[in-house]
Every structure is written in structure tokens, then in C-alpha cells.
Amino acid sequence: MEEALSEIFLQFEGKREEIIPILQRVQENYTYLPEDSMRQIARFTKVPESDIYGVATFYAQFRFTPTGRNHICVCRGTACHVRGAPAILEEVAANVGLEDEGTTEDLEYTLETVACIGCCALAPAITYNEEVHGNLTKNKVRKLIKAEAGKNGSE
């Protein structure tokens, strides 16, 4: 078993009710849920593999393919929608080289839409690597993505 995985398991007892926190920790580590980790989680918790898969597929937060190094969530909640989320989504997609939601081939960006990020007063808003950016315009989106790309490059 991979070291990262055994280290995560060390923090749990292997109880059925720990499945979701374990899945979350594993995903934090790998950015997604690899098949082999899912098998190991099944063994660790003594819960059938098909059950683990059922739990993981039920929640929108779990994914089975790797995400990009930069994770952008565009809010499509009611407030953001009426203040122009569709245009923001289009602009973000165009600037990272995607048609719609998804991950770029070079694994640089993952673009996702979410139902609400909880800051309706800042609509329209997005999160860029978990940092919230609000009151956006197409122009601000362009600048933000450019600035962030520059930051990554200099690191």
C-alpha cells in the first residue's frame, strides 16, 4: 500500500461511519479517488467495494479523475446567475482553454460549476484555488487568470 494511504488510515479506526472522512482525506491527497485507493478503503473499513463506490458516486464532492493544478469553481447560484454567471463561466472557460466544465489536457486547470459558494452579496463570484473573487466582470476574470498564471510561473 502506498505510504500516503497508510498514513491517512492511521488516523482512523476503520469504522463504517468513517468512510466519508476517509474518502475526503484520500481525495485531498490525490486530488481524486484512485481505483486502488478505493479498494484499500474497502479493505480497511471491511465494507464491500461496491458499497464504497456507491457512497463515493452519491456525493458531488468526490471525483474519479485527476484535477488540474488550478481549480476554478464558478458559482451558478441564483444571485450569481442573475448577475451574469453564464457570461463569467464563458469567459473563464475561454481563458483557460476549455469549452465548458472539465479539465485541460495539460492538467493545468479544472473548471467546475457549483450551486452556491455562500457569498451572494459578492455576485457574480468564483473561487480560484479556494480563494473567493467577487463582483466579477469579464475583464476582471481575464486579469485574474493572467495574474494567477504569472504567479505560478514565478514560483
Partner: peptide
């Protein structure tokens, strides 16, 4: 596997 309308009986992965 899945949820809501997309729920389906499935095997592991």
C-alpha cells in the same frame, strides 16, 4: 451508484 435521476445499479467502478 450515482444519485437522483442518475442513480443506477452498478458494480465497483
Amino acid at each position: 451508484s450515482g444519485r437522483g435521476f442518475d442513480t443506477q445499479i452498478a458494480t465497483f467502478f
